[in-house]
Simulated assay, not measured.
Amino acid sequence: MSAVEYDDNEESKFLKKAKENPFVPVGMAGFFAIVAYRLMKLKQRGDTKMSVHLIHMRVAAQGFVVGAMTMGVIYSMYKDYVLKPAEAQKALEHKALEHK
């Protein structure tokens, strides 16, 4: 296996995982965006202590990630318990029509 094939294989794994769980990259992007924004606002914090500013940054970033994870779990449950049974029901109906 060459290095190019290995890289393509690894990239396709990441894209496959991102397709299966689209909220993971969203959560990561949101986390880094919040941290970057709060770090840019560090000089404009006014009288707020550094520790309080960092705590607020951490809470905001963690809150976004937890929200993204929650949405991901809800999306996964929707796919597993709503879409798949509906597809299975359609397949059964289609199969029943073919046998008539």
Rank of each mutant, 00 (worst) to 15 (best):
F32K: 05
A18N: 07
E20G: 03
R45C: 00
L42A: 12
L42V: 07
K49F: 06
P22S: 01
Y37M: 14
A36V: 02
I34G: 07
L15N: 10
Y37D: 11
K16C: 06
K41F: 07
Y37K: 13
E20C: 01
V26C: 07
Y37L: 14
A33G: 04
A36T: 15
V26W: 06
A29M: 15
A29V: 15
N21W: 08
I34W: 05
V35Y: 11
K41L: 11
K16R: 12
A36Q: 00
M50R: 10
V26Y: 08
M50N: 12
P25A: 04
Q44D: 14
K16E: 10
V26R: 09
L39P: 09
G46F: 00
L39K: 05
F32C: 14
K16N: 10
A36H: 04
G27F: 10
N21A: 09
N21L: 08
G46S: 01
F23N: 10
K43D: 13
F23S: 07
D47A: 10
M50D: 11
I34S: 05
A29D: 12
V35M: 10
A18G: 01
D47E: 13
M50T: 15
A33I: 09
L42N: 06
P25I: 03
A36N: 02
F31G: 14
P25W: 02
V26E: 07
V24K: 03
G30S: 08
V24Y: 04
K43G: 08
L39E: 14
Q44N: 13
M28C: 14
F31K: 15
L39F: 12
P25S: 07
G46E: 00
V35I: 15
V24W: 00
T48V: 09
Y37I: 15
Q44R: 08
A36Y: 08
K17S: 09
K16F: 05
F31T: 15
N21K: 12
D47F: 03
D47G: 06
Q44C: 07
M50H: 12
K16A: 09
I34N: 06
A29F: 14
V35N: 05
L39Y: 11
L15P: 00
L15T: 06
A33K: 04
P22E: 00
A18L: 00
G27M: 11
L42P: 03
A18I: 00
M40K: 13
K19R: 14
M28Q: 13
E20W: 01
F23Y: 14
K49S: 13
A18Q: 02
R45Y: 00
L42M: 13
Q44V: 03
F23A: 05
A18W: 01
P25T: 03
T48M: 09
G30R: 06
K43N: 11
K19D: 06
K16G: 08
R45H: 01
R38D: 11
T48C: 01
K41Y: 02
K43M: 07
A33L: 13
